[in-house]
Design a protein around this nucleic acid. Sequence first.
DNA 1: GCCAGATATTGGTAATACATCTTGGTTGAC
DNA 2: GTCAACCAAGATGTATTACCAATATCTGGC
Lengths: 247, 247
Amino acid sequence: MKSRRMFWRIVDEIEALIDNGNFAVGSRLPPERELAEKFDVSRPTIREAIIALEVREKVEVKTGSGVYVLEGALKGAKQPVVNAFELTQARALVEGEVAALAAVSITDDELTRLHDTLVMMQERGDTEEADRLFHSIIAGATRNGAMILSVSQLWSLRESTAAIIDDYASVCSKDSHLTLEEHTAIYNALKARNPAEARVAMHNHFNRLINTLFDATEARALEEIRRKNNEKRGLYSITNLVKHTAQ
Amino acid sequence: MKSRRMFWRIVDEIEALIDNGNFAVGSRLPPERELAEKFDVSRPTIREAIIALEVREKVEVKTGSGVYVLEGALKGAKQPVVNAFELTQARALVEGEVAALAAVSITDDELTRLHDTLVMMQERGDTEEADRLFHSIIAGATRNGAMILSVSQLWSLRESTAAIIDDYASVCSKDSHLTLEEHTAIYNALKARNPAEARVAMHNHFNRLINTLFDATEARALEEIRRKNNEKRGLYSITNLVKHTAQ
DNA sequence: GCCAGATATTGGTAATACATCTTGGTTGAC
DNA sequence: GTCAACCAAGATGTATTACCAATATCTGGC
C-alpha cells in the first residue's frame, strides 16, 4: 500500500511515540516546524496529521501555545478488556430481559420475519447472518431504543477483540443445529407472548453457548499443554539429541 | 467561541450537505478547488476538512479521482432516539441483572465504599455524585467488563439528549430521601449476598423513578395545556381587546 | 477491443503573512 | 521593597497563495 498518504504515516509515528512514552500524557508536543524537520515532511503535512489526531481525540491544539497530548490517548487504556465468557454472560442477561420485554410487544410482522430467519438458518445454512438478524429483530421488538442500543453494542463488542473472534469462530460454526433448536424455542415463546418463557429460552441459548465455549477453551488449553510438552519432549528426547549431534 | 478553526466549520457544512441529501451517498464530492471557492477558503483548509471527515469515516479519498461519500455517513449524524422512559426501563432491566450478579461477587471493600455513598448522600447532600458512584461500584462488582460497559453507556445516554436531561432534572433533585431509602435496600441485599433480593430492590428503585417521571411529565403536560389556554384566553378576552383598542 | 496520450483531480511542498498565546521584563502603586 | 498590572518580543499555530508531482479516468486513434 504505497497509496497511503503521508500524514497517516505521521499519525502512526506520533501515536507510537505517545504509546511509547516519548511524549508524555499532558505534555506539549514539539512545535510544528520542529516535527516537520524531524519527520522530513512539510508543515502542512504535519498539520494534517495533528488534525487527524485531534479528530481522534488524542491531542488538543491550543492556538499560539502548542499541541498537547490528551488524557486517554494511550492505546491500551482505550478499549475495555472483555473476554468471550464475560461477553456471553452479559448477552445472556441483557437479551434475556430483551426477550421478556419483546414478548409483550412483538408484532405479527416481526414474528413472521423472525420465522424467516429460522428458515434461512435451516435451509440456506447462512447461520451467521440469520443469527444476527434473529437477535436484532427481537431487540427491535422491545420498542426501546436504549435496549436496542445495548444489544447492538454488545454485538459489536463481539467483533472488536481478536481473542473473542477466535473463541466464537470455534463454536458458532458447528452445533448450528443446536442454535436452530434454541432459536425455535425462543420464537415459540415470543409467539405465545410469554415473557417468562422467552427469558428462560434465551438464557438456555446462551448457557449452552457458554458451556460450549468452556469446552472449546478447555480443549484448546489441553492442546496447548500437549504442544508445550511435545516441545519439551523434543528438547529432551534421545532421538532428537542423536539427530542433532549426528549432523 | 470564535477560536474554532476554519476547517471545523467546513466539516460541519459538508456534513450538513450530506445529511441534507445535497451530496448523495456514494457520489463524488466536487473537486477541492471548487469547494474552496464555494466555501470561500483556501484549498489546504478544504483538505483539512476532508481529512477530518475521512478520520470520522464519513468520506473516502481516492487519489487522482476524488472524494466519495461513504455508506455510513448518514448513520453518524442520527443519534438514537431514546426518551427518559425507555432509558429508565432499560436501566431497570440491565442494572437489575447487574445487581444480581454483583450480589454473588461483591467484596467487603466494595460494600464499604457503597456504604460511603449512602453517607455522602445523606450528610453532604451530594445526591448526583453519590448516585453515580453507587451504580458504578455495583457495576464494577460484577467483574464483567461487558456489563460495566453497558451500564456506563446507559449512564452517558442520560446526558446525551436534552429532553432526558430536563426530565431527569425535575425528578432527581427532589425525592432524594426516597432515593436514599432505595439505595439502602439495594445495599442491604448486596450485603446479604442475596441475588434475587438485590434484583428486586434495584427494580423497585427504577420503578419508583419511572412513576415519578410519569407524574412529572403529566404535570408538565398539564401546565403546557394551561399555558396555551391562557394564551388563547388572552387573545379572546374582552379586557385585552379593550386595552388594545383603547390605545 | 486495446493502447497511448490528454485531462482532471488529489498529493505534497515552499514561502509568506497573520493571529494568538506565553514569557519575561518594566513600571507604577502601595 | 514588594507585588500587581501592563507591555513588548518571541514562540507557535492559522491560513493563504503558488507551484509541481503522482495518480486515476477519459478519449480518440488504431
